[in-house]
Amino acid sequence: MNRPARPLAAVLTASAALLLTACGSGGDDDSSSDKIKGADGGGGKTSASPSAPASSDGIKRPEITLSSAFRADFKNWTNSDPKLQVILNDGREQLRAKYAAVIDSEPNSEALTFYSSEATQVSARKWINQFVDDDDSIIGKVTAFNPKVLISDNGSGILFYCVDERQASTKNRKTGKIVKTPDKPESVLQYRTRLDKTSQGVWKTTSVNVAAGGCSR
Rank of each mutant, 00 (worst) to 15 (best):
S56N: 11
P53S: 01
I64K: 04
D134W: 00
T113K: 14
F145W: 07
I128S: 04
S51K: 15
W77S: 08
G42A: 01
Y115S: 00
R71W: 01
W77L: 10
S51N: 13
F160A: 10
F131W: 00
C215T: 06
S187T: 06
F160K: 00
A52W: 02
D164K: 03
V132D: 04
R92M: 14
P185T: 10
V11P: 04
L189Q: 11
Q94T: 11
D28F: 08
S68T: 14
W127N: 11
N108Y: 08
T181P: 06
K197I: 00
A48K: 12
Y161R: 02
Q130G: 15
A211I: 15
D183I: 07
R194L: 12
D196A: 14
S216R: 11
S25D: 13
N172H: 09
S25I: 10
S31E: 10
F160R: 04
Y99R: 01
A212T: 07
R3H: 13
L159A: 09
V210T: 11
D183T: 12
R3E: 05
R192L: 13
S15T: 10
A10I: 12
N79K: 11
Q167N: 15
V179L: 12
V149I: 14
K171M: 13
A10W: 09
G201V: 01
T78L: 01
E110K: 11
T21P: 00
N108V: 05
